[in-house]
Amino acid sequence: MFTATTPEEMPDKDTMLSMSGLEFMQAMRDGKVSRPPISALMNYTLDSVEAGKAVFRGTPEFQHVNPAGGVHGGWYGTLLDTCMSCAVMTVTPKGSVYTTLEYKVNLTGAIPVGREIIATGNVVHGGRSTGVAHGEIRDAASGKLYATGSATCLIMKLRDG
């Protein structure tokens, strides 16, 4: 899987709209389209994807800590927004895109720096114009819950599928 380092390496709009959201996410998982640059900055990757579900693996590093030395809440928020909104993307039809309207994060524990986590997003509603998903961040080894979240995404039809 490669990460786009220039705007030209990102998938163009026509490529994205030529696939369903699930097909696009599968192409990203398989390295056929680049993953977004933020995933390299935040140190996470797409692990698995299916209709209504997206799973990412990540590891916070020293560069992700706050002034007190803990993993910054923005790292949690980024991973939850990613897994939840990408789960919604898996239910978008060909010719459509999504954007996050709002998301909420609840931190339940401190992730140690260097600890691998799994962030899972599951769709609870995938409609014509909105999608709602829940997410969790858990320790990859022990399953300990570190955070939960919920998101609402706007689904926009840009062209006929």
Rank of each mutant, 00 (worst) to 15 (best):
F2P: 07
A4D: 08
M10H: 04
M10Y: 03
M16N: 01
S18Y: 03
S20G: 04
S20T: 15
G21N: 03
L22N: 00
E23T: 11
M25H: 02
M28V: 12
G31A: 11
G31R: 09
K32N: 09
P36D: 06
P36I: 06
I38R: 02
S39A: 12
S39Y: 09
A40I: 04
A40N: 11
E50W: 04
G52D: 05
V55W: 07
P60S: 01
F62G: 12
H64M: 10
P67M: 06
A68G: 11
G70C: 03
V71H: 10
W75A: 10
Y76A: 09
G77P: 08
L79H: 07
L80R: 04
C83H: 13
S85K: 04
C86S: 15
A87K: 02
V88P: 09
M89T: 11
T90P: 05
T90I: 01
V91F: 06
T92W: 00
L101F: 09
K104T: 01
N106W: 06
L107C: 08
L107F: 15
I111W: 02
G114K: 06
R115P: 00
I118Y: 00
A119Y: 07
T120R: 05
G121S: 14
N122I: 01
V123G: 11
V123K: 10
V124A: 00
G127I: 12
A133K: 06
H134G: 03
H134K: 13
I137F: 06
R138A: 00
A140D: 10
A141V: 08
A141T: 14
S142M: 00
S142F: 00
T148K: 12
T148R: 11
G149L: 13
S150G: 14
A151Q: 08
A151C: 15
L154A: 13
I155M: 10
L158W: 03
R159I: 02
